[in-house]
Design a binder for these strands. Structure first.
Length: 550
RNA sequence: GCCCCCGUCGUCCAGCGGUCGAGGAUCCCACCCUUUCAAGGUGGUGACGCGGGUUCGAAUCCCGUCGGGGGUACCA
């Protein structure tokens, strides 16, 4: 990833020192938190769900806080009451908890610089706006949205940029309040991910800070709260890169002559720590795109993070995989657990190009992780995929509402015992937890025989004989893997056919499918009586198919 | 249109002027193993968007171009 700009050395700042002071084995004499400690925040608007892109932003913030021993703040930006929903917020909380991303200050958990829901900070925002207006930084724009849109269209039609500046609008006494931005000169920021980025003030449109209904907008609330909460590092999506100049202008204005401190006092909110300055570090993360390099689609990860749980992905896998989207440790390791990622993560070493979400790679990671689980742990993780909590995919990839739970909620002791016995058989052949729904049913209840499997296997010569002989020898044999194997393998000589021709018909008869865990082990954990019954029941089906074949 | 960002195997990353006849992961293919399906093992295909320049030397630096993305809201 070539980093544009002359910033090759810009990443060598003081971060290493900070990070080395907080590794788990940090020497006790080094204070874990200094006056320059990292304070990062995740600040989503509560509309919609957490998806891969927003989770990556949350994760990188969280990782940087944990790596540096800093503070991870979760603030909710619900200044637009029309879009914010409580359901969305609850869903986000659930997703964060599932991923194991904990926050030190923020919604639900509180903290010294709350409230952490912007709608609860409206008094502060208004107090700030009033002071800004008093100092002459704001002006009224009384055009209606329709008028504004018409004006913008005119400008575009004339190939002119629709940039609003104080002198392009009448200074009316009523209407929305805009911030008067500088009209000339440039401003630049040294972004951790992108290097130096420069803007010309002449191209920056004056943002609306207060709506006609009196509510403040994101540009104001975001800047105020970042300052009031002592945020030191702003790490967010690239979609907010263009908003940086006006935000930094606001920082300047708010910090001048104690404007913000006075407003904080007036609103009765906690004072800022005197050592806090404006956020000095910015990191704009690239977008996450689909495998087609276009916007994230439903097939490619633009789904709620809960959807990944439903599809049988482990939270550890997601965390590991998403951390690798745009970042990698110096030694090139890919499979890492949470602590390893925290230890190795480096915000100053994040790539700037858009990352495509690759479900195949995620799936491969997941399979490996499943194999690393202890059988007992895996059994417990499997339960939600059997009891109806997580529905398997239907043909369209949507939750299948016709899925019949395989075990009770909670599972009976007997069901749990069966599951624990089954786990070693399926563990190494699963990529996702959801696949258990394919393997498990015949071990728990009666299942029909799959037509395609029957057609394929029963029509082969020797199938009927294999079923008959299988039932015969299995009727009295030691019901152990060894006993079953010996009996069944003995059949190849007796019938004069290969073992595959013996095993497949029996597999289909007993499991209903031509794909299953290993036969002997599968039979062993089933009831002998059940096995014999199924072999018996399959016989007429096999005979029919053979008859039709001739 | 205007502003900004990005551009190495299909995909994710490594590469920070010579050690790159470009490395790892994933995907794909082949072979081994094998009672199905997997897993595992071995091997393989596959990339510096293009054009100029700087330099003894460029994937690495500069310029241009093309392509992709974001912004251009009284959304965030």
């Amino acid at each position: 990833m070539a980093r544009a700009g002359p910033g090759g050395g810009r990443r060598r700042g003081g971060w290493r020192r900070v990070s080395s002071a907080v590794t788990p084995a940090a020497a006790p004499e080094v204070p874990a938190v200094s006056e320059h400690s990292v304070r990062v925040r995740f600040a989503p608007a509560p509309s919609g769900w957490l998806h891969v892109g927003s989770v990556r932003t949350a994760l990188f913030n969280w990782l940087w806080a944990r790596h540096t021993g800093g503070t991870f703040i979760w603030r909710i930006e619900d200044t637009d009451a029309d879009r914010a929903t409580d359901a969305s917020m609850q869903s986000m909380i659930e997703a964060m908890r599932w991923l194991g991303l904990d926050w030190d200050e923020g919604i639900e958990v509180g903290g010294p610089y709350g409230p952490y829901r912007q709608s609860a900070r409206a008094d502060l925002h208004r107090a700030v706006a009033r002071r800004l207006a008093d100092r002459g930084h704001l002006y009224h724009d009384d055009r209606s949205p329709d008028e504004l849109n018409a004006w913008r269209q005119e400008r575009r039609d004339a190939d002119l940029p629709p940039i609003v500046k104080r002198d392009t609008v009448p200074d009316a006494s009523e209407g929305t309040l805009r911030l008067a931005l500088p009209t000339s000169g440039t401003t630049s920021v040294d972004d951790l991910v992108r290097g130096e980025v420069t803007w010309d003030w002449a191209n920056e449109s004056d943002p609306v800070l207060v709506r006609s209904n009196g509510a403040v907008t994101y540009p104001l609330a975001n800047a105020v709260d970042d300052l009031a909460q002592g945020v030191s590092v702003v790490c967010r999506g690239e979609d907010l890169l263009s908003v940086t100049p006006r935000q930094r202008r606001l920082y300047e204005l708010l910090l001048a002559d104690d404007l913000l401190d006075d407003a904080l006092a007036e609103a009765g909110l906690p004072a800022r720590d005197p050592s806090w300055e404006a956020p000095s570090t910015f990191a704009h993360l690239s977008m996450v795109v689909g495998q087609d390099r276009k916007k994230l689609s439903k097939r490619h990860g633009s789904v709620s993070i809960q959807e990944f749980a439903r599809r049988g992905f482990l939270p550890e896998t997601l965390l590991n995989y998403i951390a690798l989207l745009g970042w990698s440790p110096r030694d090139g390791r890919e499979r890492m657990d949470r602590d390893e990622v925290v230890a190795a993560f480096d915000l100053t070493n994040v790539g700037a190009s858009a990352a495509a979400f690759d479900t195949d790679k995620l799936t491969a990671f997941n399979g490996e992780r499943i194999r690393d689980l202890s059988p007992d742990a895996l059994a417990h993780r499997l339960v939600p995929h059997l009891d109806g909590t997580h529905l398997p995919d239907d043909d369209e990839g949507d939750p299948d509402p016709t899925f019949e739970p395989v075990v009770a909620t909670p599972p009976t002791d007997e069901q749990m015992a069966t599951l624990v016995a089954l786990v070693p058989l399926v563990q190494e052949r699963m990529q996702t937890l959801a696949e258990i729904a394919d393997y498990a049913p015949p071990f728990f209840r009666e299942v029909g025989i799959d037509d395609a499997a029957a057609a394929k296997v029963f029509r082969k010569a020797g199938a009927v004989e294999a079923l008959e002989a299988g039932a015969r020898v299995l009727a009295d044999v030691d019901w152990t893997v060894e006993g079953i194997e010996e009996a069944l393998r003995g059949l190849t000589d007796e019938l004069g056919i290969g073992f595959g021709k013996v095993a497949q018909p029996i597999r289909v008869a007993v499991t209903g499918s031509n794909v299953s865990p290993p036969l002997f082990e599968s039979l062993e954990i089933m009831d002998r009586a059940v096995v014999l019954l199924r072999l018996e029941a399959a016989l007429p089906i096999a005979r029919d198919i053979q008859a039709g074949t001739d």
